[in-house]
Simulated scan of single mutants.
Amino acid sequence: MEHNIIGTLVELTRRSNDDVKIAAVSALGDYKATIEQHLAISRLIELCKDPNKDVAISAIKALSKLSGYF
């Protein structure tokens, strides 16, 4: 179940709509099971370089939230 949720959120980060990306990134940051999925962490790291600064900032914030679980 957790894998499906995380997979869906990662897929939503690939959409062209930046608001959808930001919402999905935020949800990944709030969902502690994300740290178990290397694909999600890799995607968040990629999004730190997104041309839209709001998406990049959201990815950085999500990663900082997840760092508390390590």
Results as ranks from 00 to 15, higher is better:
residue 1 M to T: 08
residue 1 M to K: 08
residue 1 M to R: 07
residue 1 M to E: 08
residue 2 E to T: 03
residue 2 E to C: 03
residue 2 E to N: 10
residue 2 E to R: 05
residue 3 H to Y: 10
residue 4 N to Q: 12
residue 4 N to A: 13
residue 5 I to L: 10
residue 5 I to N: 03
residue 5 I to R: 12
residue 6 I to S: 02
residue 6 I to N: 02
residue 7 G to E: 12
residue 7 G to Y: 04
residue 7 G to L: 05
residue 9 L to R: 04
residue 10 V to R: 02
residue 10 V to M: 01
residue 10 V to K: 01
residue 11 E to M: 11
residue 12 L to W: 04
residue 13 T to I: 02
residue 14 R to Q: 12
residue 14 R to A: 07
residue 14 R to W: 09
residue 15 R to G: 04
residue 15 R to A: 12
residue 15 R to N: 09
residue 16 S to C: 04
residue 16 S to I: 04
residue 16 S to G: 08
residue 17 N to I: 03
residue 18 D to T: 12
residue 18 D to H: 04
residue 19 D to G: 00
residue 19 D to E: 05
residue 19 D to N: 04
residue 19 D to Q: 02
residue 20 V to I: 05
residue 20 V to E: 06
residue 20 V to R: 00
residue 21 K to A: 01
residue 21 K to C: 06
residue 23 A to P: 01
residue 24 A to D: 01
residue 24 A to T: 00
residue 25 V to P: 02
residue 25 V to M: 02
residue 25 V to K: 02
residue 25 V to T: 06
residue 26 S to M: 01
residue 26 S to N: 13
residue 27 A to P: 00
residue 27 A to F: 01
residue 27 A to R: 03
residue 27 A to I: 01
residue 27 A to Q: 03
residue 28 L to M: 08
residue 29 G to K: 05
residue 29 G to V: 02
residue 30 D to F: 02
residue 30 D to C: 00
residue 30 D to G: 01
residue 32 K to N: 03
residue 32 K to Y: 05
residue 33 A to F: 06
residue 33 A to P: 14
residue 34 T to G: 03
residue 34 T to S: 03
residue 34 T to L: 05
residue 34 T to A: 01
residue 35 I to C: 01
residue 35 I to M: 04
residue 35 I to S: 01
residue 35 I to K: 01
residue 35 I to D: 02
residue 36 E to C: 03
residue 37 Q to L: 05
residue 37 Q to Y: 14
residue 38 H to L: 11
residue 38 H to D: 10
residue 38 H to A: 09
residue 39 L to P: 04
residue 39 L to I: 11
residue 40 A to T: 08
residue 40 A to W: 06
residue 40 A to S: 05
residue 40 A to Q: 14
residue 41 I to A: 04
residue 41 I to L: 15
residue 41 I to P: 07
residue 42 S to L: 09
residue 42 S to N: 14
residue 42 S to Q: 15
residue 43 R to P: 07
residue 43 R to Y: 06
residue 43 R to M: 11
residue 44 L to E: 08
residue 45 I to K: 15
residue 46 E to W: 05
residue 47 L to W: 10
residue 47 L to H: 10
residue 47 L to P: 13
residue 48 C to Q: 15
residue 48 C to F: 05
residue 49 K to T: 10
residue 49 K to H: 14
residue 50 D to G: 03
residue 50 D to T: 06
residue 51 P to E: 14
residue 53 K to E: 13
residue 53 K to L: 07
residue 53 K to D: 12
residue 53 K to R: 13
residue 53 K to M: 09
residue 55 V to W: 12
residue 55 V to N: 11
residue 56 A to N: 12
residue 57 I to R: 13
residue 57 I to C: 06
residue 58 S to G: 13
residue 58 S to L: 13
residue 59 A to W: 09
residue 59 A to T: 07
residue 60 I to V: 09
residue 62 A to C: 11
residue 62 A to F: 13
residue 63 L to M: 15
residue 63 L to D: 10
residue 63 L to W: 09
residue 64 S to D: 15
residue 64 S to T: 09
residue 64 S to R: 15
residue 65 K to P: 07
residue 65 K to V: 04
residue 66 L to F: 05
residue 67 S to W: 10
residue 67 S to C: 10
residue 67 S to L: 14
residue 67 S to I: 11
residue 68 G to H: 12
residue 68 G to D: 13
residue 69 Y to A: 15
residue 69 Y to N: 07
residue 69 Y to V: 14
residue 69 Y to H: 14
residue 69 Y to P: 06
residue 70 F to Y: 13
